[in-house]
C-alpha cells in the first residue's frame, strides 16, 4: 500500500465517520424536538384541564386523576366513570376495554379530548401506578379466631410468619447506606 493509498483510505474513513455522526445527530435532534415537545407535559391534572378547557378546544391530551369510587358504569362500548384530583371532578366517557388494574381509586391517565357536553371523551386509559411496593395487608376479619383485643397482634404475627428471609430492618438499613 502506497502513502497516497493510505491517505485516500484515511480520508474516506473520515468522511464515512463524519456522515454517520451527522446522520445520528439529525435523527436524535428530530426525535428530541418532535417527541419531547409534545410529551414533556405528558399529562394534565383534572384542575389544570378544567382551567384550560376554553383554550384547549378539541385538541387531544392526557387527563390525570383517580377513579372516584363507585362511579364506574360499564356501557356497550366501554365504561363511564369520574376522575378527580381532590379539587375538581370530571365525568369521562371511555370507549374500549379498560386495563386490568382499572379499579376504584386507581390512578389513571385518560387519552382523549373534551366532548360536546361536560364530559371528557377518552379512547385509551393508562394506569399510572405508584413507586411503593408492599404485600397485601392481612385481613383481620379472616384471621383465626381471637378476641377483639388480640386480633391486631395476631395479624402482625401472621405477616411475620409469612415472610421468609431476614427481618425488615436488615435490607432497608442497607439501602439507606448506599
Amino acid at each position: 500500500m502506497t502513502q497516497t493509498d493510505a491517505t485516500a483510505k484515511a480520508r474516506r474513513t473520515r468522511t464515512v465517520a463524519a456522515a454517520v455522526v451527522c446522520g445520528l445527530t439529525v435523527i436524535v435532534g428530530v426525535v428530541l424536538v418532535v417527541v419531547l415537545s409534545q410529551n414533556v407535559v405528558y399529562y394534565r391534572t383534572v384542575s389544570e384541564a378544567v382551567h384550560d378547557r376554553k383554550t384547549q378546544g378539541g385538541d387531544r391530551f392526557r387527563l390525570a386523576g383517580a377513579v372516584v369510587p363507585g362511579s364506574r358504569q360499564p356501557t356497550r362500548n366501554g365504561v363511564n366513570f369520574e376522575v378527580t384530583d381532590g379539587t375538581n371532578t370530571v365525568r369521562v366517557v371511555s370507549q374500549g376495554d379498560p386495563p386490568e388494574l382499572f379499579k376504584d381509586s386507581a390512578p389513571v391517565l385518560c387519552e382523549g379530548r373534551w366532548g360536546s357536553g361536560l364530559t371528557f371523551d377518552s379512547d385509551r386509559i393508562l394506569i399510572r401506578h405508584g413507586a411503593k411496593y408492599t404485600p397485601p395487608k392481612v385481613d383481620t376479619k379472616h384471621a383465626p379466631k381471637a378476641t377483639e383485643g388480640e386480633a391486631a397482634g395476631h395479624a402482625v404475627s401472621t405477616v411475620r410468619a409469612a415472610e421468609p428471609g431476614p427481618e425488615r430492618p436488615g435490607p432497608q438499613g442497607q439501602e439507606r447506606e448506599l
Binding site: 414533556v40 408492599t134 428471609g165 436488615g170 432497608q172 442497607q174 439501602e175 439507606r176
Partner: peptide, 29 residues
C-alpha cells in the same frame, strides 16, 4: 424533571428513603 407515565424512583429517590417492603428489597439487591 418531567411528568411521566413511568413511576418515580423507589430506592434512589431524592429523599433516599426506599419505599419497598423488606423481602422485596432483599430480592432486588
Amino acid at each position: 424533571w418531567w411528568r411521566t407515565l413511568h413511576q418515580k424512583a423507589t430506592v434512589f429517590n431524592p429523599q433516599l428513603n426506599p419505599e419497598i417492603h423488606g423481602v422485596m428489597a432483599l430480592t432486588l439487591w
